[in-house]
Simulated scan of single mutants.
Amino acid sequence: MTKISLPLALVAAASFAVMSAVVAAPPAKTGTTSKGAVLTDAKGMTLYTFDKDADGKSACNGPCATNWPVLKAEAGDKDGDGYTIITRDDGSKQWAYKGKPLYTFAKDQKPGDITGDGFLNGAWHLAMP
């Protein structure tokens, strides 16, 4: 039977806890706009949802995705806290919140901008926490 010293066991346990916290961190944050709390990307840019997306699938491809950049999921990212990872038509991965794919808007210039809210006859909406 192998004996592990107490300090080594504590370091291992602490390392596992830190690694678990890093992996489990949500892909979006909460920011404040003139319309209240919204989900944001890591840079603080407002996130949006699109009415034409259905069943956890993005309908925003090609030129749409140029104007509405997706919140990309990276290899090794994991679902959790209402966030899921969907596969786009091109095979890339995108974050969704409560089943709704998440996007930024190319015309938003700074954190707190919400110029995409209501765009395209009301089809784009602020992603709310």
Score class of each variant (00 low, 15 high):
123 A>M: 10
89 D>T: 15
49 T>D: 01
99 G>N: 09
21 A>N: 14
19 M>F: 12
75 A>N: 12
86 I>H: 06
73 A>G: 09
81 D>E: 13
40 T>D: 03
86 I>R: 06
19 M>T: 14
120 L>N: 14
47 L>T: 05
120 L>V: 14
67 N>I: 11
49 T>G: 02
91 G>I: 10
39 L>A: 03
49 T>N: 01
14 A>T: 13
60 C>V: 09
63 P>W: 13
114 I>G: 00
56 G>S: 06
103 Y>S: 12
62 G>P: 00
31 G>E: 03
46 T>L: 00
39 L>V: 07
89 D>M: 14
129 P>Y: 00
82 G>V: 12
51 D>Y: 03
8 L>W: 03
54 A>G: 05
117 D>A: 08
5 S>W: 15
94 Q>D: 08
33 T>K: 02
7 P>T: 11
119 F>E: 15
21 A>T: 12
127 A>V: 04
48 Y>R: 08
72 K>N: 06
28 A>W: 11
2 T>R: 15
117 D>R: 00
43 K>M: 03
92 S>R: 08
88 R>S: 09
17 A>W: 11
91 G>S: 13
121 N>A: 15
93 K>R: 12
111 P>K: 00
95 W>C: 02
15 S>A: 15
24 A>I: 07
109 Q>L: 12
40 T>R: 04
48 Y>V: 01
87 T>G: 07
80 G>P: 09
61 N>M: 10
20 S>W: 05
114 I>H: 00
7 P>E: 08
98 K>H: 09
30 T>H: 02
69 P>E: 09
41 D>T: 03
97 Y>L: 02
45 M>V: 04
44 G>S: 02
85 I>K: 11
50 F>R: 00
110 K>F: 06
97 Y>H: 12
44 G>K: 00
57 K>P: 01
14 A>H: 03
54 A>C: 00
105 F>H: 10
72 K>E: 12
108 D>P: 03
60 C>W: 14
66 T>K: 15
110 K>P: 07
62 G>Y: 09
50 F>H: 02
3 K>H: 15
64 C>D: 08
35 K>T: 11
38 V>K: 04
37 A>T: 13
49 T>W: 03
30 T>Q: 13
26 P>H: 07
44 G>C: 05
74 E>H: 09
111 P>A: 02
7 P>R: 09
94 Q>W: 10
37 A>M: 07
72 K>L: 11
128 M>T: 15
68 W>A: 11
37 A>H: 04
53 D>L: 07
71 L>N: 07
102 L>I: 13
58 S>I: 09
5 S>T: 15
55 D>H: 11
4 I>N: 09
99 G>S: 08
67 N>C: 13
15 S>R: 00
31 G>P: 07
31 G>L: 09
19 M>I: 13
98 K>C: 04
108 D>M: 01
99 G>T: 10
100 K>W: 01
10 L>I: 14
44 G>I: 01
77 D>P: 05
73 A>Y: 08
43 K>G: 02
32 T>M: 14
